[in-house]
Design a protein around this nucleic acid. Structure first.
Lengths: 356, 356
DNA sequence: TTCTCTACTGTGAACGCTCACAGCGCGCTG
DNA sequence: CAGCGCGCTGTGAGCGTTCACAGTAGAGAA
C-alpha cells in the first residue's frame, strides 16, 4: 500500500458515467501544503491556525472544490449535524393550516444559517411513531423541533429521556411530560384572547359568547381562560351557556354557534378560538339571518388565510409564526450547546378587519 | 411486536447526562455468536446467511437494541440513504396551496417505507440555491424530489449534470432542461381540462371563457390547450376574447374575469385553471350580479380545500396528489437503482359540486 | 545562554461499517 | 474418487474525518 492512492488517479474527468471521486481533506492539505490536522482545525473554527496557513487552506478549498464529508465527520463526532422537524399532531389540523407552512419554512431557513439540514418526520400511525423514535433515539439527529399539541403525547417524554434536545412549538400540556420542564416556544394565547375580548367589549358588546378550542390542548385552554379573565375583570359574570367547545375544524364552528344561538339567542358577539372555526361561525350566522358585524361581532384567532378569504373579512389575532420558528431554532441550538430548557412566549397582534 | 418494549432493559436510561455508547455491529456479532460480516449481510438483504444465523442475529439485534449507524455505513458506501425534497417554486404559490402539504406528506410516507428520511430544502434566494446545490452536489443526498414549475429553472440541470437522480413534480418546461429528458410525474392537465370543458358543454353552455394559468408553466399551457382542443373538436370556434391569463392567485382570477365580462358580457361559463383563482372568479361574478351556476357556470382545477370552502362549492378537477407523491418516490428509487428517466402521467378526476 | 511558555503544526489512532477475498464443508458430476 | 461449484462464513482493509498527543519554533524572562 504505497501512500500514492488518490494522488493522480483521482484527477481525470469522469469516464462513462462513473462519478468522480470527491476531493478529500487530504487533497486540500496537499494542495495547501499543510497537514490534515490544520485543514480540519481551519474548518472547525480556525483556532490555532496561522493567518498564512488559513489563507493557503482557503484557496486550496476553493481550487479543489472541496466539500466536507459529513458522514465521516459524524462518524467520529457522534453528532449528525442535522435536526428533525417532527409532527405528531393529528395531521389534518395542521395540514389545513397554511401557518404550518410558514413555521416549516421558517425553521428550514433558520437552520440553514447553521448549515444544518432539516429532516421532516411525520408520526401518524403507531408504527411510524416507533420507527421515528428509534431513528431519533439512535442519535441520527442532534435535536428535535416538535409540533404536537395534544395532551399526553409520549414522544416528547421518550425523546427527552433518551437525552435528545427537544423544543416544542406551543405550550406543552401540563403534567404530560413528567418532571422536566420542556423547552418550548409559543404565542401568548391567553393575552391574545384577552386582547380580542377587550376589543369586543370596546365595541359595546356585552353578551359575548365563545367557541373555544379542544380543552385537551393548552392553546384551547388558554384562549378560554383569557376570555373568562377579561369578562370577570370587567364585572361581567361568565355565563356558561355562552361557552361552546369546538375542535378547530370549520364544521365544528358551525355546529357550536348554532347550538349557542339556540341557547342564548341574544348573544351579540362571538370570540372564536380559530379562524377556520370562525368561517363555520360566519356561515351559521348567515343562515340564521344574523348580520356580521351589525347584529353579532365575530373575532377569530390565528390570522390564517381563512381570515381574509371570508366575507366579511375576519378581525383576528395574529400569531407571530415567523418569529416562533426563529426562536424555536435558537432555543434548540442553545439546548444542543448544553443550555437549560427555556420557555419563550411571544406577543400576538390584533388585526382589525370587518367582522368585529 | 407485542409488548416487548422494556423486556431486557438493554437501554438503561442515560444517567447524569452522559449518553451511553450505542451497541455496534460488533456487539451484535458477539451476542449472536457470528462475525461482523454475517451481521452486515443480514442487515443488507440477508443473502448468503443461513436460517439459524439469521435467527441468532435477529434476536441479538433485538436484545442489544442495535440500530445501524448510518454515518459509518454512508462513509463506506458513498450513499447517504436520504433524499432531498427541493422546492424552488416561488414559495407563495405553493405555500398557499394545501395540496403542497399532501404532496410533502405523501413523499415522506413513501420514503419512510424505504427507511429513508426526507430532507426539506427551500431555495428562495440565490445564496440558498448555491448552498443547496453545493450540498446536494457533494453527494449528501442520494436523490432529489423537485418541485419547480417555472421555466428555465437552472437547478434541475445542474443537479442532473452532477449525476444526481432527480424526479420532478409536474411536466418540465419544454427545452428548459437541455438535452436529457427529465424524469417527472404529473397529472394529466390537458385531459383534465378537456374533461371539464366537455362537462360545461354537456351542461348546455356555449360561450365558455377561460382564466388560464401562467403560460410559462407547462400546467398553465396544457390546461389552456385542452380547453382549445375540446372547443375545436366540438365545432365551436375559439374566441380569443374569451381567454384571459391569471397567475394562480385569487386576485388574478378576480381581475381576469372582470376583464372577460367587460369584453364578452354574454359569456355563460368560465373554466378556471385553479381553484384559488376560481374563488376570485366567484367573488367577481357575485359583484357583477351574475348567479352561479344559473347565469354562469364555473369550473375549477385542483380540488383544493378552496373548492369546498366557497359558495357555491366548486365543481373542479381533482389532481391525484397522493398518487403523484407515491409515484415520484417510486420513479426516484428506480433512477437511483440505475433505471432510465421515465415520465408518469396520472389521470385526474372530475368532481361535480354546485358551481357547474 | 537557557529555560519556559505559547502558538502553531503534524501524525497515528480511532469511529462503525461494508466490501472483497479467502476458506470451509457439502453435494453433485464425471 | 477426484474435481468442481455453491452456499455460507470469517477476516483484513479501508471509507474521510476528528481528536489527542507529541513536537517545533519563536518570544520573553531569568
Amino acid at each position: 500500500m504505497g501512500g500514492t492512492r488518490g494522488t493522480d488517479a483521482a484527477r481525470p474527468t469522469a469516464r462513462n458515467g462513473e462519478r468522480r471521486r470527491a476531493p478529500t481533506i487530504h487533497d486540500v492539505a496537499r494542495v495547501a501544503g499543510v497537514s490534515r490536522g490544520t485543514v480540519s482545525r481551519f474548518l472547525n473554527g480556525g483556532h490555532h491556525v496561522s493567518a498564512e496557513a488559513a489563507e493557503a487552506v482557503r484557496s486550496a478549498i476553493h481550487s479543489t472544490g472541496y466539500v466536507v464529508n459529513r458522514h465521516a465527520r459524524s462518524l467520529i463526532t457522534g453528532r449528525s449535524g442535522s435536526v428533525a422537524f417532527l409532527l405528531t399532531e393529528p395531521q389534518e389540523r395542521f395540514f389545513e393550516d397554511p401557518n404550518f407552512n410558514v413555521l416549516l419554512r421558517g425553521c428550514t431557513r433558520a437552520l440553514a444559517e447553521h448549515d444544518m439540514p432539516l429532516l421532516l418526520m411525520i408520526a401518524g400511525t403507531p408504527e411510524e411513531q416507533l420507527r421515528i423514535t428509534r431513528y431519533i433515539g439512535a442519535g441520527h439527529v442532534d435535536g428535535v423541533l416538535l409540533v404536537s399539541s395534544h395532551t399526553g403525547d409520549p414522544v416528547a417524554g421518550q425523546l427527552a429521556a433518551a437525552g435528545i434536545p427537544v423544543v416544542a412549538c406551543g405550550k406543552p400540556a401540563i403534567g404530560a411530560g413528567g418532571t422536566a420542564p420542556a423547552a418550548h416556544v409559543a404565542a401568548d394565547d391567553r393575552e391574545g384572547a384577552r386582547v380580542m375580548v377587550r376589543h369586543l367589549l370596546a365595541g359595546g358588546r356585552r353578551r359575548i359568547a365563545t367557541v373555544a378550542g379542544p380543552q385537551d390542548t393548552p392553546g384551547g385552554v388558554d384562549r378560554l381562560l383569557g376570555y373568562r379573565e377579561v369578562l370577570t375583570a370587567s364585572g361581567i359574570p361568565v355565563d356558561e351557556g355562552l361557552i361552546a367547545i369546538g375542535d378547530y375544524s370549520r364544521d365544528s364552528g358551525d355546529r357550536a354557534v348554532t347550538e349557542l344561538l339556540a341557547r342564548r339567542p341574544d348573544l351579540d358577539a362571538v370570540f372564536v378560538a380559530s379562524d377556520l372555526m370562525a368561517r363555520g361561525v360566519l356561515a351559521a350566522l348567515e343562515r340564521a339571518g344574523r348580520r356580521v358585524p351589525e347584529d353579532v361581532a365575530v373575532g377569530g384567532f390565528d390570522d390564517s388565510p381563512a381570515a381574509v378569504g371570508s366575507r366579511p373579512e375576519l378581525t383576528t389575532i395574529r400569531q407571530p409564526w415567523a418569529r416562533i420558528s426563529a426562536e424555536m431554532v435558537r432555543v434548540l441550538m442553545g439546548r444542543m450547546a448544553g443550555e437549560e430548557p427555556s420557555a419563550v412566549i411571544l406577543p400576538t397582534e390584533l388585526v382589525i378587519r370587518d367582522s368585529a
